[in-house]
């Protein structure tokens, strides 16, 4: 057998890039984005369709975004913009951390112990369908200040998603893993740590990806109703002040950070589930 040295990291990266360029994926992505931008441009700035005539076109938005001296008050260079981003991200971080910290253990216990599930499931199912906007008055009544109610609302929304997905994750684990662990002499704690937790991980991470998105939805809703900073506030404030360019900038920023956060969650998930990544890779996924 020929001895082969392990490829270095940079070689792997180059190989992966080279391989990706041979697939249609990057070209289709570029094509898709161009198509979208082109349509947006034509509707607003090219043909000036009536439906779009109050909206700023992509060219106007990009120019404003990159303008060191913005016409409408907010661009990449304005400290106010950074504050909005900072506040929203900070709230998401806190809300997501609390929701995950409570939701994952809650879901794991609900899935693992039938008794615990019998106690708690009806409550979860009753509270879960209540839309987050319906919680706004209650949040304002319960918490003082502007920051806590907003974080509370974002936490609540993602908590339900995380809990439910974790619970489903535990239920999805094949009975034979529990039996095998028991056969091999595992205690109940061992079963929890070595079967319930790792077995539910794929569902947990799917749940977390959704939950971070849901946290953004509800955060923005909450910021629009009450708040002083944040991207949701910026959208609403720009609308009120008829600075539609800033509004679109805030929307796109929101989309971008939402995407970054879910990508981060996915990355952490893949790091924690190498076993799954490798098995899926062999199936060509």
């Amino acid at each position: 057998m020929i001895a082969k040295s392990e490829p270095s990291n940079s070689q792997i990266v180059l190989y992966k890039i080279g391989k990706a360029l041979k697939t249609p994926t990057p070209y289709l992505t570029i094509f898709g984005v161009s198509l979208w931008l082109g349509a947006y441009y034509l509707f607003c700035e090219g043909w000036r369709l009536p439906l779009f005539n109050k909206l700023p076109g992509p060219y106007e938005v990009i120019v404003e975004w990159l303008n060191p001296d913005p016409d409408w008050g907010i661009s990449l260079y304005s400290p106010e913009y950074h504050d909005h981003i900072y506040y929203s991200c900070r709230r998401i971080l806190i809300a997501f951390a609390i929701a995950t910290g409570i939701g994952v253990p809650l879901g794991l216990f609900m899935g693992w112990s039938k008794k615990f599930r019998d106690y708690s499931f009806p409550i979860l199912e009753t509270l879960r369908p209540i839309p987050i906007l319906a919680w706004v008055p209650l949040a304002i009544l319960m918490f003082s200040g502007l920051e806590t109610p907003v974080i509370f609302l974002a936490t609540l929304a993602s908590l339900f998603v995380t809990t439910l997905n974790t619970l489903l994750g535990v239920n999805s684990i094949d009975e034979s893993y529990f039996r095998a662990a028991k056969c091999l002499g595992a205690s109940n704690t061992d079963v929890f740590l070595h079967v319930v937790v790792p077995g539910a991980l794929p569902f947990i991470f799917t749940g977390l990806e959704i939950s971070v998105g849901v946290a953004w939805f509800s955060l923005v809703a909450a910021e629009m109703v009450s708040g002083e900073f944040g991207l949701g506030y910026m959208i609403n404030d720009s609308y009120m002040n008829i600075t539609y360019v800033s509004m679109v900038i805030a929307m796109l920023t929101l989309g971008f950070f939402g995407w970054i956060t879910s990508a981060f969650v996915r990355w952490v998930g893949n790091r924690m589930m190498q076993w799954r990544v490798k098995a899926l890779a062999l199936e060509g996924r």
């Binding site: 039996r179 095998a180 056969c183």
Partner: peptide
Amino acid sequence: RIVVFQHGALFPWK
């Protein structure tokens, strides 16, 4: 008494 299961039950995460 250890069982070897019909569909296999090696822990996929180990």
